[in-house]
Design a protein around this nucleic acid. Structure first.
Ligand code: FES
Ligand code: FES
Lengths: 141, 141
DNA sequence: TCTAATCTTGACAAAATTAGTAGGGTATTA
DNA sequence: TAATACCCTACTAATTTTGTCAAGATTAGA
């Protein structure tokens, strides 16, 4: 499996923040309840996203989390990498554990897979996803 | 990470068998030594591939493993799925743990990723990889 | 000022998965 | 018939995932 719940939870939360961009902070509980994500776990994820610079926080009453940049300037890849680390098809690509180095054929296909994954996640912004959500709602109603 | 060592080891071994297709069986030790894969571990993987019908075995002296079909009839996807189970970007796609079901936007991107992965692994056969290996050797020498 | 709401931090723990190890059993053939 | 090689199951170690918990810091608003 490419992504764990970290990426899934974190991306959903980011998307929620993107949806509220410009409308004030969202607190942890509201997000964790809406998407049924354990509060303390989500907290850790949002903390990572903050350290990576994608999220800002406001402490104290009425505080919460908000996107640090415009939705169009945050890609899905940024969020996923902040949470899951490098997104890779096989870790031999990063740590060359293979031994065959330059003549490994298996490597070629792993690279192909990885390129196509990166191509998707690096070319989809949170704004793109908001647009898609709007389309979905239109179709549903 | 999309693939564990299971898929990596197993794909390498399968490729080795594909390379020797029609030239008699290869024994476990020769493969495990060549690619530096723990013997007993590889044994388990090859056993799975046998149960899935991609590999035949010959017991006893002079025995070993051989591909059960022509390299052109075995895809990378078949091997990987036999070893790793369903290849997926996020398991919410299989077990709909999400709760939003039909209106989940996050799901869309996971589906895109998965399609592009499947597109690659289902359209690459072991024979394709053998051709690539030959090209690589030509370039290297 | 007091207090409740909120994020902050770091340690801890349970569960699941991965990556092996080990060893006895079975079939084949030189 | 002995050596070779696959077969099978159980066990273990290591790692990662998926949380839980508690004490603290900050702030808005009564
Ligand atoms: S580099 Fe990944 S298997 Fe060779
Ligand atoms: S279906 Fe996967 S996050 Fe909604």
């Amino acid at each position: 499996m490419l992504l764990s719940t970290k990426g899934r939870y974190g991306l959903k939360a980011s998307l929620e923040l993107a949806f509220f961009y410009g409308k004030g902070p969202l607190n942890l509980k509201s997000i964790s309840e809406k998407y049924n994500i354990p509060e303390s776990y989500l907290e850790q994820l949002l903390s990572k996203l903050k350290k990576s610079g994608y999220i800002d926080t406001i402490r104290g009453k009425q505080g919460g989390y908000l996107l640090a940049k415009e939705p169009k300037d945050i890609t899905v890849g940024m969020i996923l990498r902040a949470l899951e680390g490098e997104i890779t098809s096989s870790d031999c690509l990063k740590n060359d554990k293979c031994g065959e180095e330059n003549t490994c054929v298996t490597r070629i296909i792993f690279e192909d897979i990885e390129k196509s994954i990166n191509n998707i996640i690096d070319n989809t912004t949170l704004e793109d996803m908001i647009h898609k959500r709007k389309q979905i709602y239109k179709e549903a109603h």
